[in-house]
Design a protein around this nucleic acid. Structure first.
Ligand SMILES: [Mn+2]
Ligand SMILES: [Mn+2]
Ligand SMILES: [Zn+2]
Ligand SMILES: [Zn+2]
Lengths: 137, 137
DNA sequence: CTCATAGGTGCAATATACTTGCATTTGCAT
DNA sequence: ATGCAAATGCAAGTATATTGCACCTATGAG
């Protein structure tokens, strides 16, 4: 999941700035949902303003570069949108692990059937449970 | 979905107060995810402090009476936990419709298989799409 | 029924997570 | 090279939620 970020930015009509490349690098380094504060911390050497990070996350989400992940936490978490996947979340320690499996076509179709909806274009699916470590204790 | 709220509160070891019954009534009246501000508004005649509503939502969630719903909105939304279901959410107008279908046993099993997780005890599933009204326009 | 007490509520202050306005800087098309 | 729209930084503002502390009330023991 290392990518041509300058190209991606151009494609989306966004300017190719050092700040934006740095933020994208943070996302590709860790394959887990991250928030603005985490990025700010990781990039503290570069001294990037937190406001800029918020604005960047917003425009990246609009451009479809990032996807907001629903974790029921106080702050918003994001991931690279290119890599569609879901999460196993430990209800004890908070560990998050990604998985690719998401065959919910049947569920979508059945849900649509008796609804006031025409189409389903996306979904979020998160599984909650106990990681092996916490299951032991 | 009208219920014996005094009994429910007792069962959970929570005191049976007018404020709590009023809040539970709001949840049973509208079968949709609601937030603190909405409850405050609905109960403005009773002049219940917003702080109390936040604290009530918190203790109800801990007690398993309420479930926090992931809607990627600024504030936290809750629903009665007793009635497990999911949502179709219109990406255009924000309309939310519930559905019961959630046969994700297969997905859960496959996800667990190659993971560091032992068990799955719950899940959240939300479908995003266009409602019929918005699909026309 | 009365009383003691743990738990619930209100108010004010505080904290956290963003958001906005505006001046300055920078990427990029020409 | 130049101009301009877009991006950034700083300061102030807003929305949402939390905490401390005093007072109140539901509930169970006696
Ligand atoms: Mn992930
Ligand atoms: Mn619902
Ligand atoms: Zn764990
Ligand atoms: Zn709609």
């Amino acid at each position: 999941m290392s990518k041509d970020f300058p190209g991606l930015l151009k494609e989306k009509g966004l300017k190719n700035t050092p700040t934006r490349r740095a933020i994208l690098d943070v996302f590709s380094a860790d394959c887990k949902p991250i928030n603005a504060e985490y990025i700010h911390e990781k990039l503290k050497k570069s001294d990037i303003n937190l406001v800029t990070i918020y604005r960047t996350l917003e425009s990246f989400e609009e451009a479809g570069i990032l996807k907001r992940v629903s974790l029921n936490k106080a702050s918003s978490y994001y991931e690279l949108a290119a890599n569609h996947h879901h999460h196993l979340i430990c209800t004890n320690c908070g560990t998050v692990e990604g998985f690719k499996e998401c065959d919910i076509g049947d569920v979508s179709r059945k849900a649509l059937k008796d609804s006031k909806f025409q189409t389903v274009s996306g979904h979020s699916l998160e599984l909650f449970g106990k990681c092996k470590k916490c299951a032991k204790a």
